[in-house]
């Protein structure tokens, strides 16, 4: 076992531990931190694959944005007062378990069917520039559609937070 393999095993262990913690810890802030550990583990695995850009985006989006969104949710809903027990089976949890099972089965199916992927003879020189080029040429339409969707979501958020001019005048 060389250093790279050792690193992979350690990182995978940390990642899996983070995922387990996120699903089993009862205290929400601690569960969130465990989830953050998982996100970092995944990002580090991307780095090990020399997919630096994806690894960075993983940290930037999941740790920098998604985790902070959870933070806002916890802070604004006073989750500490309403901590629920993990063990109880309510309908939403049954649906969640079903969804997880379907996704998991799909992933296992893909992993089982994948045979050894032949590696290119020459390692690619960085992945950032090719990704940018592909987004601007071959995948321009999906890219633009995604931006329109995000813009619509942004405008929706602004509308929800809009100042009510009429009400203020009557008040």
């Amino acid at each position: 076992m060389d250093i790279a393999q050792l690193g992979f095993v350690l990182l995978s262990a940390v990642t899996i531990a983070g995922a387990l913690g996120a699903t089993t810890i009862n205290d929400l802030p601690r569960a969130l931190l465990s989830l953050v550990l998982f996100f970092f583990g995944v990002a580090a695995l991307f780095f090990m694959l020399h997919a630096e850009f994806i690894g960075v985006v993983q940290v930037l989006v999941y740790v920098g944005a998604v985790a902070v969104l959870f933070v806002f949710a916890i802070v604004l809903t006073r989750a500490r007062l309403q901590a629920t027990e993990i063990g109880r089976l309510v309908p939403s949890r049954v649906l969640g378990i079903l969804g997880a099972a379907v996704v998991g089965a799909g992933l296992v199916g893909v992993v089982v069917r994948t045979t050894d992927v032949p590696l290119p003879a020459v390692a690619p020189l960085g992945t950032t520039a090719p990704i940018g080029e592909a987004l601007m040429t071959r995948y321009l339409l999906p890219f633009e559609i995604a931006s329109v969707l995000l813009t619509a979501a942004l405008i929706g958020a602004v509308v929800i937070a809009l100042e009510d001019g009429e009400q203020r005048r009557s008040a």
Binding site: P29, V56, V59, L60, T128
Partner: peptide, 23 residues
């Protein structure tokens, strides 16, 4: 290849640290 972006990604973690401290 992405050091500028990585700099921002890593420093965004400090937000979480401040939240932990306050919480």
């Amino acid at each position: 290849d992405v050091s500028v972006l990585l700099f921002f990604a890593i420093s965004s973690v400090s937000t979480l640290a401040l939240f932990i401290a306050g919480w």
